[in-house]
Design a protein around this nucleic acid. Structure first.
Lengths: 255, 255
DNA sequence: TCAACCCACTGGCTTGAGCCAGTTGTAAGC
DNA sequence: GCTTACAACTGGCTCAAGCCAGTGGGTTGA
């Protein structure tokens, strides 16, 4: 044992061995790893140490543990891509919302839950972008959960101005033809420019529950602002995507 | 103890208690958590159980452990924003590369390491986008590490065609005025459109080392393609960003 | 034939113990 | 006043043991 190798903790050495087995193709997607007890024996370590090694790999998103069954190399998942053309007027002609359109393209069955629609005090970042007061119930918050083939894909919180939404279909789960953008257009807001601000982070426990996220999978958070023909922001949405199922794509001219 | 509460493992209960202490402001950014041994005593659990609770929070990116010092609530970091205007010709006039420009805007000192420039066989995804053969050494790969105030921010792998780069400054660390885009323009490629494909994932151990990433911080991976006036892809770059320091912003018209 | 049951396997969680390795303040010695 | 040394903290890592809870194959019995 060289000093460089022994400098590493045993759990790390076991994890590295498994990682290279996966990367070399010795263990393939869907394959079952040796059980914790077997690994412990193989490497002359305690079960907790082998367990720690597996946890490291799970944290890196390489493997998934299934209670009672075993630990499996994660299958690379087909990505649900969201292109910057998802808001384009051409797509609007289909009468489908961006999510339904993308689901259809990929041959998946979309489902949209609307757990709540309520007048609320906006979060700070939303208030800033929608240009409404941050300290009063100035917005309507529509929370949607999106599923593809009954698998949760994203959580979307949409915010529009309360004074505009009041008494319209924007307060209803079924918002009418072309969804909320149809209603907002009737209110005089033609979507002309969009601004998407993107970060990645680990999910909150609440998000992990809704999105059925296993350990080692981050979320992509997109804070979207729609601007109308006068440059007025009229809708802000926060998209929280499962990062293992979702990718974003932006195509744009260089001015 | 209600059945709902007792259904949760002890480590989870401790973690939840700490999480709500943080969210309620009882524990603020930079504050030190009770030590593992103290937590164990407070909650009547073994040290390993308290330790597991802290690990859960670290995995969620809420806290950072420092050997010998304690566990601290993570400070929200100022984001290094990369806007979609980073490639714009207006910025080109400054003679600075996008990274140097963004660093300057935020009053940080940029540093760029160029650990390697070499002719290589391209990765599959790069070959597809650059429209070069995936099975021969058809590209030049420039690997750069970017630092702001000596803190690593991103790893960038840039790929250009070998037959174009051969014998030019594209093979050198110092690629001349306006960086590689200046040279590529001399080769007849005016950047006209860009395509950015974005995913989030956990870092590989190698990336975690270079980017000095602690547990619970994902990376943002951007696969960027530059298209010239004829729609020909002439450069592909893979950006691997620290997600705790980096955000992306895209502003575009809806066509 | 089929359902019910059981048992051996899997990971999930906790305990309590011990040693190591950074960090930091304090006391001792120069 | 300064440096050195120590001691008391911190987290890092491992061990051995035990019990629980899902899973799935095989056996048993109707």
């Amino acid at each position: 044992m060289t000093s460089a190798e022994s400098a590493q903790p045993a759990s790390r050495r076991i994890a590295d061995a498994l990682r290279s087995a996966i990367e070399s193709g010795e263990l393939r997607a869907g394959d079952k790893l040796p059980s914790e007890r077997t690994l412990a024996e193989q490497y002359g370590a305690a079960r907790n140490t082998a367990r720690e090694a597996v946890r490291l790999l799970a944290e890196q998103g390489l493997v998934v543990a299934q209670h009672g069954r075993g630990v499996f190399v994660r299958e690379p998942r087909r990505l649900f891509r969201f292109g910057s053309d998802r808001y384009s007027l051409a797509n609007r002609a289909t009468g489908l919302t961006p999510f339904r359109l993308e689901a259809q393209r990929q041959g998946k069955v979309p489902r949209i839950d609307v757990p709540s629609i309520a007048r609320e005090v906006p979060p700070r970042d939303v208030a800033d972008r929608l240009e409404v007061p941050p300290d009063e119930a100035s917005v309507v918050h529509r929370e949607n959960h999106y599923f593809a083939d009954d698998e949760p894909v994203q959580i979307v919180s949409t915010y529009v101005r309360w004074d505009e939404a009041q008494g319209t279909l924007l307060m209803e789960a079924k918002s009418g033809p072309n969804g909320i953008y149809g209603r907002l257009e009737e209110l005089g807001h033609v979507m002309t420019n969009i601004r998407d601000e993107i970060i990645a982070r680990m999910p909150t426990p609440h998000e992990a529950t809704i999105l059925e996220l296993q350990s080692g999978i981050p979320v992509l958070e997109v804070l979207h602002t729609s601007l109308d023909q006068d440059g007025v922001p009229f809708e802000v949405s926060r998209y929280v995507h499962r990062a293992d199922l979702t990718g974003l794509k932006y195509e744009l001219p260089v001015q």
